[in-house]
Structure formats: C-alpha cells, structure tokens
Write a protein that binds this DNA or RNA. Structure first.
Lengths: 240, 240
DNA sequence: CGACTATTTGATAGGACTCAACCTCCGTGG
DNA sequence: CCACGGAGGTTGAGTCCTATCAAATAGTCG
C-alpha cells in the first residue's frame, strides 16, 4: 500500500509520479510503538520528523497539577514536527493512543527532499497551515462551544480527516479514542464526556461501538456543532 | 527606530547587519487601520504578508450564533500569514484592537527575501513554530485552566512577548485589551473576565489602570497559572 | 478466570453564565 | 462650560452546565 502521506498531500496539490515515488521512499526506518507509549517527551531534544504510518497518536501537554490537555490527534499520513529541528527542545509531548508504526525521517533527508521537489515542499507547507487552522478551530471549540457541540465538532473533524486519507467506510470510521482521552482533548471530565457521547447516541446522531464510530446524520451533527469544513482546506470539502 | 521584527527575530537567531538592513527595508507600503477595524476577513483571498508595526491586533473566528473566539494576539513585530498565500482563502479574520500601522509585504517579496537570506528564513520559521506553541498553550488554558489561571497565564505570556520586543517598562506594559476582548480570548463572559481581573488585583498580583498593566508579583502570577515560559523559546527565558 | 482498564449511572456541589442595573470615563456639541 | 451619549467597567442575585465523588457494571488481555 502506498504511503498515506501521499494521499493526504494529494488533497492539497497534484503530485507527479516521481514525486509520489520519492515520498514513498522516505519511509525507511520504521519504529513500532505500543499503545499508550511516548513517541517524544516534552523537554527532549528535537531530532527528526515523524510520519505516522498506522495507528493514532496525539500531542499533549501535562500541567504541574497533573491535568492533561491533548492539543492534536495524529492519524496515519500525518507528519509531525516538520521543522522542529529548528528549536532545541520539544515544548510538548507526543504519545500513542493505539499501537502505532511511525517512520522517523532524519532532518537532512527532509531538507534534501523539500529542496529538490518544490511541489512536495508546497504540499507540506499547506499541511502545516491546515494543522494551524485545526488548532485555531480547537481553540474556538474549547472557548466557545458547549460539551455537546465540542464532541460533535471533533467527530465531524476527525471524520473529514480520516476520509481525506480514505480510511473511512461509508459514514463510519475507526475512532480509537477512550472517554478519558476524549475528555482530555475537549476539555471535559471523563464522566461528562461519556454522558455527552450518550446524548449524541440518544439523538440518533452517531453510533459508537467497539472503537467504531458511525455518523448517522452528518448534516445535523455539523449544524449542531457549527462545523464548517472550510478550515480543513480539502479541495472541495463536499459532503457525499 | 528599527523595525520591531528585527528585535523579535533576534530572540531566535543572531542576525548580521546586512540581514538587519534587509529586514528593515521590507517595510515599504504601510497602511493605517482605525481601532476595531478588519485587516483581513474570513473568506478573503490571501494576498500578502502582514507585519504589525504599531498597535495591537488579533486573529479571531466568529461562530454562526455570533460568539467570537480570539485565537491570537498580534503585537508590534509580529508577522502574520507568513505563508498563507499557499491557501486560497482565509479561514479566520484579523482585526485591530487599537489603531494600528501595518506593513503589507507582497508574497514574492517574502519569497525573494527568504530565498536570499537563509538566516532570516530560519528565524521566520522559528517564529512560526513559536506561534504554534502559543496556540497549543492557549488550548491548554482553555481546556484545563480555570478563569483565574487563564487570565493570569495570558498576562504572563503577553508580558514575556512584549518584553521580547522591548516594549515593556520594568514590570509594566501597555495592555490595550478591553474586558470583552479578554473574555473572547480566554473563553469567558465579559462579566466574569472583569471579576477575575478584580480578583487578581485584590490578591496584589497586578495593577491595571488605563490600559497599563503592572505585574506586582510575577513569580506568584506564574505559579498560580502554571506558566512555564519555555514554550516561547526565548533565548534564556530568564526572569529578571 | 482474575486484574485491569474502560464505561455507565446517580447524587451533589460549584464555577461560570445570565440578566439587569448602575457607574465612570471621555469626547462631542449646544 | 456643562449636558448628553456611548463605550467600557462594576456589582448583585439567581440559574445552569459541568465537575466531583462514589459505586456498580462491562470489557479485555494475559
């Protein structure tokens, strides 16, 4: 199977076949991580670029009082720390939420790649801009949406992202996030995150069994959560 | 006076004198904006890079129900939309919160500049990474800090940023944010933002009169809000 | 099967919101 | 020079959403 990074970047830019090949060849050293293990920890020196091949991971910060906030989910095809090697140390951690395979790309390999293929460089920059847009939208959720809206919005977003790398099946997709992790990402307690999920189920908006989430009514889910996909900058952003 | 972008970037990288000159020369077309006016609006085509010369601005999104969330403050020396021209349309708005002078740099000018001066390019990328780190920290605040901690944290952050461009005076600085704007950035209502400010005053942590904010006890303000400056990646990050 | 981890449910508490009134600046203009 | 008006700030009382605490019920993996 082709590297999912290629599918992802194709959403932003048409890639030529030699560019695709090149992107495929960057996957060399692959490392497996167990569920709930640390890929990089806050304070670590920055040493390379990570590409998620399989599994889900997340960025997070832990406060001195033990509270945790997840600031992003990373799914297959996502590349993280594209340019962190500019900074000395990580200011946040990255950890897996499922078993995961990640490819570690040396900084100089990245530099060579983007130097040689301007198309790839552009596509990677687009993807960085979208990551930033996602963070802004999370701030909007955390600051201005209530519990139901936050969870619904996250589901819409993750569905669109999973769909962009074609890992969805119809309106359902693998969503391996526990209630505690969900809570840490939408700024709720695990208990209330669970109740909120229940509410969405009772309103027949989703079904969620055994890590498989099915969206039963995307339009209502989107309007309820004021989800507007344009910030994801996915070609059309059309809902089919 | 030299362009504040230079001061800002000097925090990340030593710049040679010809690089400084070059950075100074990018300020050509300057545009003045009245207080509370839109610099760019969500949906607008992306057309250039903005450098704040004087005054404060902010990025924000407005939800269909009228609620607003500010996702970043822009102060003199801040450059926004460094690479937005990669995307077609703005997914958020930028507006002034004071009268402001901003320089609009054409995309090709930016490309030429970074192409010719690798140091500048590196420094600009660092600053982008720091902007991302700031957004993550805002997510942490919005998701996991209570009202008092959020406001205190924002004050610590803005003080450090203002100080990095040397616009502070001792432990006080110009902080032209109204309670309504503060509320829109920390995810509170204006009324509660006001009460929170009052609480900080009563605890002798700050004084705040006529848009001038003085930090009376930085250490307590920082520990109260679990502020750790390392995410700002400012050289030492030492508090003097 | 047994020890976890994850989810669900119930009852109560509390932090932030809401609504409303009032106050204080300031700039404007009669 | 003072009245007026509007934006921003302060205060009070009551409500609601989400947190907390606690316990019981699945699920899951070795």
């Amino acid at each position: 199977m082709e590297n999912l990074l290629i599918r992802k970047l194709s959403n932003y830019m048409d890639l030529l076949s030699d560019e695709r090949q090149e992107l495929d060849s960057i996957v060399q050293e692959t490392k497996s991580f167990a569920i709930h293990s640390a890929v990089v920890r806050e304070g670590d020196p920055t040493n390379g670029v990570y590409l998620i091949l399989t599994g889900w991971a997340c960025r997070y910060k832990v406060l001195p009082d033990g509270q945790r906030q997840i600031t992003a989910y990373l799914i297959p095809g996502d590349m993280c720390n594209q340019q962190v090697f500019m900074l000395k140390r990580m200011d946040h951690s990255i950890g897996t939420i499922t078993p995961a395979a990640v490819s570690i790309i040396p900084a100089d390999r990245m530099i060579a790649l983007t130097g040689k293929y301007p198309h790839i460089e552009r596509a990677l920059r687009c993807s960085t801009l979208v990551d930033e847009a996602i963070m802004r939208e999370w701030a909007v959720s955390l600051g201005r949406r209530n519990a139901l809206e936050r969870v619904a919005h996250l589901i819409c977003e993750m569905f669109m992202r999973v769909r962009a790398v074609e890992l969805h099946e119809g309106t359902s997709f693998y969503f391996p996030v526990t209630q505690a992790e969900l809570a840490d990402s939408v700024g709720l307690t695990p208990v209330h995150a669970g109740r909120t999920l229940k509410e969405l189920r009772e309103q027949d908006l989703i079904s969620f069994e055994g890590r498989r989430l099915t969206i039963l009514n995307f339009d209502r889910l989107a309007s309820l959560s004021m989800f507007n996909a344009s910030y994801l900058h996915l070609g059309q952003g059309a809902w089919t």
